[in-house]
Simulated scan of single mutants.
Amino acid sequence: MYDICAAETVSLKKGSFCLIDLGISIKMPEGCTCWIVPRSSTYKRYKIIQTNSVGVIDGSYSGNNDIIKFPARADEDTVIHKGDYICQMCVTKRPPRLTFTEVDSLDDVNRGGFGSTGR
């Protein structure tokens, strides 16, 4: 993981949307993908939410004007200053091609459904 900061100062009003420039363009190595995700403190500090949940950057996003941005919606009036760390970049290697098989049921024990971890 790499912490990434804003490349510009942005003022957001409650309910507004902005693409925050991260000042980064990259050429991904063959077979790799980059994910842009919020830092755990981003909402607490700035009251912004990344609107696409996860930004996925593949090898085709590598032109001169393909600058990575953080799509943010503000839940309160806020200011993100140039240099503020607002997200993380994770570079992952794509897994080998997967094959899917349709089945009528699975053999594992049920955990309890959505939201059951840590009960």
Rank of each mutant, 00 (worst) to 15 (best):
K44V: 09
T92H: 06
V54Y: 00
H81F: 00
L12C: 10
L106Q: 14
T51R: 05
K47F: 03
S11C: 13
M1T: 12
I4H: 06
I67L: 14
I48K: 06
E76Q: 13
P38S: 11
L19T: 02
D66E: 08
P95T: 12
E102W: 09
L12Q: 06
D58N: 15
I57Q: 07
D75V: 10
T9G: 00
T117P: 01
S105G: 12
A72C: 09
L22V: 06
G59C: 06
G112F: 07
R111I: 12
R39D: 09
V56W: 01
T51P: 05
S116D: 05
G63A: 12
T117W: 10
D75N: 11
T42N: 06
G112P: 06
C18Q: 08
G59Y: 04
D21C: 06
T9K: 01
K82M: 08
Y61C: 13
T51K: 08
G83D: 05
K13A: 13
C32H: 14
C34W: 00
I36S: 06
V54F: 00
N64K: 10
R39G: 11
T42L: 01
D108V: 00
S41W: 01
S62M: 03
Y2P: 00
T117S: 13
S40F: 01
V54C: 05
S40E: 04
E76Y: 05
G118Q: 05
I57M: 08
V91K: 00
I20Y: 04
V79Y: 02
R39V: 09
Q88D: 08
S116H: 09
S25Q: 13
L98A: 14
K47I: 04
Q88M: 12
N65D: 13
S11W: 03
S105I: 04
R39K: 15
V10G: 11
D3R: 11
M28F: 03
A72V: 10
Q50D: 04
D104N: 13
Y85E: 09
G83N: 06
R111Y: 11
C87W: 04
I48T: 10
D84I: 08
F100W: 10
S62C: 13
G113W: 01
S116C: 10
G59A: 12
K93C: 07
C90A: 06
E30W: 00
L22Y: 02
K14Y: 01
I48H: 04
N65F: 02
C5R: 08
I80P: 03
I49T: 15
V10T: 13
A74K: 10
R119A: 14
S16A: 15
D77E: 03
A7L: 04
C87M: 08
E76F: 05
W35F: 14
D107G: 10
G113P: 04
C32K: 13
C87P: 10
G115C: 02
E102V: 14
C18N: 08
R119N: 14
F17M: 13
V79I: 15
G118H: 06
M89C: 12
I24P: 00
D104C: 05
I68G: 07
V56N: 02
P29M: 11
V103H: 02
D21P: 01
P71T: 03
M28L: 15
K93R: 14
T51L: 08
D21V: 02
D58G: 14
I20R: 07
C5Y: 12
G115M: 03
V109N: 07
V79N: 02
I36H: 03
D84S: 11
G31F: 04
L106H: 14
D3P: 03
E30H: 03
L106T: 15
R119G: 10
I48G: 02
P96E: 10
G115H: 02
I36C: 05
K27A: 12
